[in-house]
């Protein structure tokens, strides 16, 4: 994991389940419509585990990692 983590969030795919916010609210938020907002597109290493978990468990598949 030399490369820093880079997250992408597709707001057109997002269904607003809010799982990412519950998993890592330092990196993800929801706007007033419930759709994902990326607070930290290149999150620091301390959030890597939570971010990977959020990406893996996103119900709509709106979240992706650049290294994937």
């Amino acid at each position: 994991m030399s490369e820093p983590l880079q997250v992408r969030a597709d707001r057109n795919v997002c269904i607003g389940a809010g799982m990412c916010v519950m998993t890592c609210e330092e990196v993800f938020d929801q706007d007033d419509d419930g759709i994902v907002l990326l607070l930290l597109p290149t999150p620091p290493a301390e959030y890597a585990t939570a971010v990977r978990q959020a990406v893996r468990n996103c119900p709509s598949g709106a979240l992706t990692l650049r290294d994937e």
Binding site: I15, G16, G18, E25, Q30, D32, D33, G34, I35
Partner: peptide, 12 residues
């Protein structure tokens, strides 16, 4: 319909 309802069930 889901988009109309989603704002009502946000984490906030």
């Amino acid at each position: 319909l889901r988009r109309i309802l989603t704002p009502e069930f946000t984490v906030r």
